[in-house]
Nucleic acid binder design. Structure first.
Length: 653
DNA sequence: TTTAGGG
DNA sequence: CCCTAAA
């Protein structure tokens, strides 16, 4: 249902929910959380989504075949070299059709060779899936064509208001899409230059438009430069994802269209379509990010298992809780390439993401250190008792299982879905401050541990070995050691302040942490440190666990632009859907919760009603306040209507 | 977890 | 911005 009347006078200008929005009491139990649905989606959002998908596909495919070309040459070079060296026994692994990555890696373990093998395997598996991909693409394109025609009809109805003309005929899109399909299905096992150029040219027009896609106004980590990890991780896990890409395309991105249709009108693109693309993109960012997270995990596992010495050995941690001396391997020139580009891609240029993600960030953790696991024990205890006590303390921590945390410059990176580039881990300038923590696994709390020390025991010597324990002193100054100072676990809420305000840039609400988890944000976590220099072992700030009082979150007044975004979102969504408002307009702003937005709206309404002289803080433009009042009035009325509809007997006319 | 509303 | 009942 289009809200025709208001739309005519240019008030809200969007669709309102198909179903009346009843007040909570009338709606009954809340339905599962849902985001803005397709039938409420702005046409521009749909167009933009599709265009983005097409571009993404084009980009990844081009990159793939460039990689294939390079790899082929590289492998041939290596093969030739080994043949020249008279080691024919090894050459079989290079034979087309029998090149098994595992055997390759087993025999040729240098970095270059592994890369070549992985990339080759990638190409082969990808090629083998191309036919299926092409078939499914054809289907989804059929759907796309249908939907685009519907969309075109819709858009033309609104032509005058939204100013889009020259929307490309769906048939043209169709032919382009078919070009994609036929290209894909004509893949040869060994990618040829001819194929590559043919592929590129068929998408030249799209490529021309690609410049417009570069998202220059992305703020901080808001948006998804996440497809960068596709090529990267696939190089290490070849058998992954053509099928999944297709499924994603056919199910989630239902409406499809071609960005090219919009490019003719560049100015309107910037003024109207691009902002819509931006907001639409936000919701897809998470999906892509999650997809990539899995691949990254695989990547790390793979990296760990193939590293020749040390490598990532999180599995080995329980056995080697000793000195930590780790470093980044920055000798790889490609790592530097990665760094230089990683920085810029996180702020401006999407295309760089592809390039920087081509090369791995290499970490080498040789061992772990436990900097702060202090034991308190009576001075008359024996050394053997001390050893056992330490052992028990460590065992108590470890028995619950371990998990690994990542600290960058003292900030805990909670968002598992971030790429290394996005998190800043690919930036060598910061690597000195990269740390890994070993934390007791909150999901497997260690069983209550009885201390059965066989030493002469005073009643005060009954230490409860829980992971919370921080024992302050080691065999020092028995006169000051009051044996009854058994350190208490901190109350669970003592550390909530450590996570949110301290980690705005890296914290993610997508990973809500349990209170137990937050507890280990404190110094009680085992903190091995990854650093180049040994003296950098001190860079991880151990937080003051004494900060026990619950602190208020830092006050962050809303800027005018934030108000603008809020008003805009509420105009579209109404005053009762703060979670949706949050997702729509503040998805990437971690420190604005939906409660904050609701509160801000409340104060905005209040501000708009009082005289300008009574207002304080940064002045909000009057036109915004006017919009606040009218939107608020409208949605209140809407809600009242729904209430009457829902409760006809309570309010007889 | 999300909404709604008082403080 | 906090707190919390209610859904």
């Amino acid at each position: 249902m289009v809200f025709q009347k208001k739309l005519d006078v240019g008030f809200i200008g969007c669709q309102i929910p198909t179903m009346p929005r009843f007040p909570r009491s009338a709606r009954g139990k809340r339905s599962p959380p849902k985001k803005v649905e397709n039938n409420q989606m702005h046409p521009f959002d749909l167009l933009a989504t599709v265009a983005g998908e097409l571009l993404e596909k084009r980009e990844s495919s081009c990159s793939l075949y460039e990689t294939a070309e390079r790899t082929k040459n590289h492998v041939n070079t290596i093969k030739q070299k080994h043949l020249d060296n008279g080691s024919p026994s090894k050459s079989d692994v290079f034979d087309q059709g029998s090149c098994d990555e595992g055997s390759f890696v087993a025999r040729f373990v240098s970095h270059e060779e592994r890369r070549a093998a992985s990339a080759l395997a990638l190409v082969k598996s990808d090629v083998s899936e191309k036919d299926g991909f092409a078939r499914k693409s054809a289907q989804s394109i059929g759907t796309l064509k249908c939907e685009l025609q519907k969309l075109k009809a819709t858009v033309s109805l609104k032509n005058d208001r939204i100013g889009i003309h020259n929307l490309e005929d769906p048939m043209i899109l169709d032919s382009k899409a078919i070009a994609l399909v036929s290209s894909d299905s004509s893949v040869e096992l060994t990618p040829s230059v001819d194929y590559h150029s043919a592929y590129s040219s068929s998408f030249q027009s799209v490529k021309d438009g690609a410049e417009l896609v570069v998202d220059k106004d992305d703020d901080e980590n808001s948006s998804g430069r996440t497809h960068n990890c596709a090529l990267y991780s696939k190089a290490f896990k070849p058998h992954c994802t053509v099928e999944r890409r297709v499924r994603k395309m056919t199910t989630s991105n239902y409406w499809k269209a071609d960005r090219e249709a919009m490019i003719n009108d560049g100015e309107r693109w910037n003024r109207e379509i691009k902002p819509a693309l931006h907001s639409r993109k936000l919701s897809y960012t998470r999906q892509r990010t999650q997809r990539c997270s899995f691949k990254r995990k695989k990547l790390l596992e793979r990296f760990s298992s193939s590293a020749s010495n040390g490598g990532f050995c999180s599995q080995d941690v329980p056995d080697s809780l000793v000195k930590c001396d780790t470093k980044f391997d920055s000798s790889d020139p490609q790592a530097h390439l990665n760094d230089a580009q990683g920085r810029s891609c996180s702020t401006t240029d999407q295309r760089l993401s592809y390039e920087s993600a081509d090369h791995p960030v290499k970490l080498s953790i040789k061992s772990f250190r436990v900097p702060e696991l202090f034991i308190e024990i009576p001075a008359n205890a024996t050394v053997g008792s001390l050893k056992r006590t330490v052992m028990e303390a460590v065992t108590a921590v470890l028995s619950g299982g371990l998990r690994v945390g990542v600290l960058l410059q003292g900030k805990k990176i909670r968002d598992d879905n971030k790429t290394l580039v996005q998190a800043g881990i690919s930036n060598t300038d910061k690597l000195d401050n990269l740390g890994f923590t070993l934390e007791p696994n909150p999901n497997r709390a260690p069983p209550p541990h009885k201390s059965n020390s066989r030493e002469p025991e005073s009643p005060n010597n009954r230490l409860q070995f829980t992971p919370f324990m921080v024992i302050r002193r080691i065999l020092s100054h028995a006169d000051q050691a009051t044996p009854d100072t058994i350190t208490q676990p901190p109350p669970p809420n003592t550390t909530a302040n450590c996570t949110d305000s301290d980690h705005d840039s890296v914290h993610s609400h997508a990973n809500p942490s349990s209170s137990v988890d937050q507890m280990y944000d404190n110094s009680k976590a085992l903190v091995p440190i990854l650093a180049v220099k040994s003296d950098a072992l001190s860079v991880i700030p151990l937080r003051n666990s004494r900060r026990s009082e619950m602190v208020r979150r830092i006050r962050r007044p809303f800027s005018v632009s934030e108000v603008e975004a809020l008003v805009q979102a509420v105009e579209k969504l109404g005053t009762g859907r703060w979670r949706d408002v949050k997702l729509r307009a503040f998805d990437s702003v971690k420190h604005r919760t939906y409660v904050d937005l609701k509160d801000k709206w409340k104060t905005l309404v209040h501000t708009a009603r009082i005289s300008p002289q009574q207002r304080r803080g940064e002045p909000v433009p009057q036109d915004l306040l006017d919009r606040v009042l009218s939107a608020h009035a409208y949605w209140c009325q809407q809600q009242a209507k729904s209430t009457r509809l829902a409760e006809p007997y309570l309010l007889p006319a």
